[in-house]
């Protein structure tokens, strides 16, 4: 397994009386990683601490092997990291290509390289001819693309993306997530995607860190978090399953009805064999057309993690700006 791109140990940060981070300790592995949490969980604070834009009250972090608390190492970090801020920070009066080239030069690129590279990354984020318009004339989607381009201009190995899909329409969001996914999975970038949108993480990341109220609640691979559960089966029947449901209930199975003759059957503790279900269905004359283990959604894992912390979080906090509709529900 490759070396973690980011290591954090017992990081604390408070803004006055508000404790933003409470002893965060984690190792961020290589590859695309989702930093997931509701608004106010401390995600942006963590990113700013990693870039040395904030000073921690306690604890330390290393990113690309460098410590952001040391002034000299901080500058080294900033050459190795591409940061896409959440806020609308594009400088008015400049065109996208000018801004990206300027930031490339400020990172240490020669003028000609910076301009060539600006065009390359703007091509990559698909800005087209609009790159010559003034920054203040861009739509939200275009601004997000330009912010990604400026983070990529110096080809950094680590990318910190802060709420990159905020305010995007469904089409733009899909395109943007494709880019993030490509960068993380095919271009070898260590992407730390900081968001409160579960589907974004589910689609683009291989590893998930769940934060809430300034602490890391859970950290695992996406595969583990959404692992199939052998004790819950998703079943579809041809006819009305009511007779079968009665038999199963009598034998200790828990049943949840789904639309179109669908059922979610939880096997009794100690049972993992689904053959019995089929036998009982045949006995009552119900034809089973589909049966498969139920896969946990990221939202379930997320809520479970928060539940384990003893915190109830309103689901609305997780996806207030989900323009694609209620994808989380679809996943359930």
């Amino acid at each position: 397994m490759s070396e973690p791109a980011i290591r954090i140990h017992d990081l604390h940060k408070a803004y006055g009386s508000v404790q933003a981070l409470r002893g965060v300790t984690l190792s961020v592995p290589a590859g695309p990683v989702g930093l997931l949490g509701p608004n106010g969980a401390g995600k942006t604070t963590l990113l700013k601490l990693l870039l040395g834009m904030l000073e921690p009250d306690q604890g330390q972090a290393t990113i690309a092997g460098l410590n952001p608390d040391h002034a000299k190492e901080r500058l080294g970090i900033r050459q190795r990291v591409g940061y896409m801020p959440e806020s609308d920070c594009l400088i008015p009066g400049m065109s996208a290509v000018e801004l990206v080239a300027l930031l490339g030069r400020l990172t240490g690129m020669p003028p000609a390289d910076a301009m060539t590279r600006a065009h390359e990354v703007l091509d990559y984020v698909q800005t087209g001819e609009e790159r010559y318009r003034k920054n203040e004339e861009y739509s939200t989607g275009m601004k997000q693309r330009i912010k990604l381009a400026q983070a990529l201009v110096h080809d950094p190995p680590i990318l910190l993306l802060d709420e990159p899909t905020n305010g995007l329409d469904p089409g733009g969001r899909n395109d943007f997530l494709d880019l993030v996914s490509d960068l993380g999975r095919h271009q070898g970038k260590h992407v730390l995607l900081c968001t409160h949108l579960l589907p974004d993480v589910e689609r683009t990341c291989d590893h998930v860190i769940v934060m809430n109220q300034g602490t890391v609640v859970r950290q695992d691979t996406m595969a583990n978090l959404t692992a199939t559960s052998a004790s819950v089966m998703r079943v579809e029947t041809e006819q009305d399953p009511e007779p079968w449901v009665q038999v199963l209930t009598a034998r200790g199975h828990q049943i949840h009805s789904l639309p179109k003759h669908g059922l979610l059957v939880t096997l009794p503790p100690g049972t993992s064999d689904a053959d019995e279900l089929l036998t009982l269905a045949a006995q009552v004359g119900v034809t089973v057309t589909a049966i498969e283990p139920q896969r946990a959604s990221l939202e379930e894992a997320f809520l479970e993690a928060l539940d384990a912390q003893g915190v109830l979080t309103d689901v609305q906090d997780l996806e207030p700006e989900n323009p694609a509709g209620d994808e989380v529900e679809e996943l359930l």
Partner: peptide, 18 residues
């Protein structure tokens, strides 16, 4: 003032600038 208002300092200070 404009850099502060627009948070453009986040772009500048994400670069190796003191």
């Amino acid at each position: 003032a404009e850099d502060r208002r627009l948070s453009a300092n986040l772009l500048y200070f994400a670069r190796p600038i003191t």
